[in-house]
C-alpha cells in the first residue's frame, strides 16, 4: 500500500489525508478508565451511544452532572412530547442516522415553567402560542432551545441521539449505576 504524505511546516512528513472518527448508535466503541490507585465511580465514565442504545425514546438520562447542571442523552425516535423550560437549553445532534432531527418551536402565550423551576418540564397537550420556527439538525449541529418556548423533536426512520445541555429537573433520570463503569 502506498502512503501519500505531505511535508509539515516543521519539516516532518505527515499523511496527506486523515479520517475523522465520529461514533453513532450503529457504530461506537467505548474506551474506559484504567485504574491504578483510584475508584472508577469518581470518573462516572459512560458513553452517550451506549446509554441511548438501551433506553426508551425521549427519556432524558443524565450522563454528566455538575451541581445543578446536567448533560442529558436522548434517544431520538419518532415524535417527542412537547417540552419547555424557564431557561435556555441546547441540543447537539450526535447522530442523525443519515437523516435529520427536526426541532419545532412555539412561543408559549403563558409560560408553563415558572422562573423558579429548573430543568425541562412537559407541556400538557399541544402548546398554545405562535410558531417560532423549525430547525433541521444533522450530525454535529447544535440548536438553541430558547427559554419560554415549547419544543419537540421529530426523528423519522432509524433512531438518532441528542445531547442536551440543561439543568437537572423533574424529567431528568439518574441511572449512574446502570450506565457508568464501576470497577
Amino acid at each position: 500500500m502506498t502512503t501519500i504524505t505531505s511535508p509539515a511546516q516543521g519539516g516532518a512528513i505527515q499523511h496527506a489525508n486523515y479520517t475523522t472518527t465520529f461514533a453513532a448508535l450503529a457504530s461506537y466503541e467505548k474506551g474506559g478508565v484504567e485504574l491504578i490507585a483510584d475508584d472508577a465511580r469518581h470518573y462516572a465514565f459512560s458513553n452517550i451511544f451506549d446509554v441511548a442504545s438501551t433506553m426508551p425514546a425521549w427519556d432524558r438520562v443524565a450522563v454528566a452532572k455538575n451541581w445543578e447542571y446536567v448533560l442529558e442523552t436522548v434517544r431520538a425516535e419518532g415524535t417527542s412530547p412537547w417540552f419547555t423550560a424557564s431557561h435556555d437549553e441546547f441540543a447537539i445532534c450526535m447522530d442523525a442516522a443519515d437523516g435529520e432531527v427536526l426541532v419545532e418551536l412555539v412561543k408559549l402565550d403563558m409560560p408553563i415553567a415558572t422562573d423558579d423551576v429548573e430543568g425541562a418540564v412537559l407541556v400538557d397537550g399541544d402548546p398554545v402560542g405562535p410558531r417560532m420556527g423549525r430547525i433541521r439538525l444533522k450530525r454535529g449541529h447544535q440548536a438553541l432551545l430558547p427559554k419560554g418556548s415549547a419544543y419537540r423533536f421529530v426523528k423519522d426512520g432509524a433512531p438518532g441521539v441528542l445531547l442536551i445541555q440543561t439543568i437537572g429537573g423533574e424529567l431528568t433520570q439518574y441511572r449512574w449505576a446502570e450506565i457508568c463503569q464501576t470497577v
Binding site: 472518527t21 465520529f22 461506537y28 466503541e29 467505548k30 474506551g31 478508565v33 484504567e34 462516572a44 459512560s46
Partner: peptide, 10 residues
C-alpha cells in the same frame, strides 16, 4: 489512572 476516551465517551 489512565483514561482512554473514544468518540461518544463521557
Amino acid at each position: 489512572s489512565r483514561v482512554v476516551m473514544k468518540a461518544g465517551d463521557v
